[in-house]
Design a protein around this nucleic acid. Structure first.
Lengths: 140, 140
DNA sequence: AACACACCTGTAGCCACTACAGGTTCAAGC
DNA sequence: GCTTGAACCTGTAGTGGCTACAGGTGTGTT
């Protein structure tokens, strides 16, 4: 059995985060010691590991909740898992695309700046007027 | 003079957001009508436009606060502006790099999935064990 | 004068944590 | 057995950048 600190070390998750996961029912409440401290099993460790790794891969808490439910139904077809993963990949791809547009816009803005005083600063000028931009760089 | 709704339309900013910007002192409090409604000048419009455009380009509120202060000191050298912009560009670049790593990891995971049931799902397997991953995909 | 709609303030909620404050338990050393 | 100090406990509030109400007031048109 692991204390919360040991579990934290074993999974690279902070102690506060583990307690938070319990509060939002992402982690089940573990057994307690005589003095009311949490004691975790290997099952807990595996579940938290799965959660942390999924978080590191950018899945939302809600997506992870679904993934955990799905991974418990071992005999079911994994189409739902696949769909979740693909949807996430696509979202990441879109985010990359919009950040690339943004970076190019920032680059153009920065390159345009030839030093000198603020009154003639290209960066301030661009920020003041979107028509200086090439694209739409909508939501970021 | 513009009402808050007209200002919102003119800048593509939501009414609530304008009030929020006033609360956090990013926008100065405007004049009021006899009936206590906000009335904005062209200076307000320009400032809000600058803020919105900077937000669209991903600058934080704090960075924008600095940019606004700097842009008011017309005679100063624009090095500080340049530094702020470059720092932001670099942050965006880093974010792109880590998202690219992440996307590749997701792609590998998804490609590994050959259908079938959850018990043999490659996606679940990878999520359960980071050693299946190629890189570190640290903070996302 | 009536109506619809825009506006007002203040508060709570979103996401995924993080950071306290103020108290209790545990394990090691003496 | 006793003391120390780290680790633990609960509960609440804060982060960023808004967004969404609720319950009331002003404005402009017919």
């Amino acid at each position: 059995m692991l204390s919360i600190g040991e579990l934290a070390q074993a999974t690279g998750c902070k102690v506060e985060t583990i307690r938070y996961y319990e509060k939002i029912a992402l982690m089940p409440a573990p057994q307690r010691s005589a003095g009311n401290q949490r004691r975790y099993s290997q099952q807990h460790r595996e579940r938290l590991y799965f959660i942390r790794h999924s978080r590191d891969l950018g899945f939302s808490i809600d997506a992870i909740r679904e993934l955990l439910t799905l991974s418990d139904q071992q005999q079911r077809n994994c189409t739902a898992v696949d769909t979740l993963a693909r949807r996430h990949r696509d979202a990441v791809q879109e985010r990359i695309a919009s950040l690339l547009t943004l970076r190019d816009e920032l680059d153009r803005m920065i390159e345009g700046c030839a030093g000198g005083d603020v009154a003639h600063c290209r960066i301030i000028e661009v920020l003041s007027d979107h028509s200086h931009c090439h694209g739409d760089h909508g939501e970021v």
